[in-house]
Computed example of a mutant assay.
Amino acid sequence: MAERVATEYVNATLKLTEADMQALFALSDSLELRHQVFVLDTGSHEWVLEDDSAGESLRLSFERENGIYVCALSCRVVKPRLTNFLRKLVSTFRGDAVVNRIYTGFTMVYHYRSGKVVRIAECKGGEIRTVFEQRNSIGLMEEQFKLCDVEREIGIAWQSVNELLDLRNRAVAEAEIAEIDARLKRHSQLLFALEA
């Protein structure tokens, strides 16, 4: 199994409330990361995380905008604790990010939207191969249900069948009845296909 060399967060964006900030502190405590918080005059926060065992640190800036703390993050981490923390940070607080997980010889690119992975691509030797892509299945199903074209066609076909049956009941000549029967057969096949 390939060993990860580093993890890069490219243009990660998080929006946290005051309560989320408290949960964020608890998350760093649970992962045994030392942290220091600096509150600036504007109400914004500078947050320094340190993994003492690995000697790696990370600085996060949370700008206060209308009672919400916004963090725009681009960084590179190597050690597992900070890597794990950032992954949980993005998923727990529904962040948007592009994450490059760098291995020897290739890179896996994860695209997060609202904390969920929506696309994974492998970059190797200048080639990009999509490994996973989330599809909006619910949205596609809703669109299908909203489409009433098939129901409209079925209604038109049934109306034609009723008219042909009325014509058949009034028809006297065998040739005319045979022609109506052939048309009814085509309509019944069409109805079968549409209702399937």
Rank of each mutant, 00 (worst) to 15 (best):
E65Y: 12
K116P: 09
A157G: 12
R170L: 03
S137A: 12
A121D: 03
A171Q: 08
A6H: 12
R135S: 15
V99M: 04
Y69L: 03
R186E: 11
F132Q: 06
V39C: 06
L140N: 13
L147E: 05
E143N: 11
Y103V: 01
R81E: 12
L58R: 00
L82F: 07
I156W: 05
G115V: 01
E127G: 07
S188Q: 06
E151H: 04
T130V: 14
G67M: 13
Y110I: 04
L14G: 10
D149S: 14
V99P: 08
Y112C: 01
K146N: 02
S44H: 01
V131G: 07
G43T: 05
C123G: 11
K79C: 00
V10E: 06
D96V: 07
T130Q: 03
R186D: 07
N11V: 00
G43M: 03
K88G: 05
D51N: 12
G139N: 15
V70C: 01
K116W: 13
L31K: 00
T17H: 11
N136D: 14
K88N: 09
T130I: 09
F106P: 05
S160K: 10
E151W: 05
A178S: 15
R152V: 10
T42H: 02
F85E: 13
N11Y: 08
K15L: 00
E151K: 12
K15T: 07
V161G: 04
E174L: 08
E32M: 09
A2Y: 07
L89H: 06
C148P: 03
L147M: 06
A23C: 07
V118H: 02
W158V: 14
N169K: 15
C75G: 01
E63D: 13
Q159T: 09
L167H: 09
L191Q: 06
L194H: 05
L24P: 02
E127K: 15
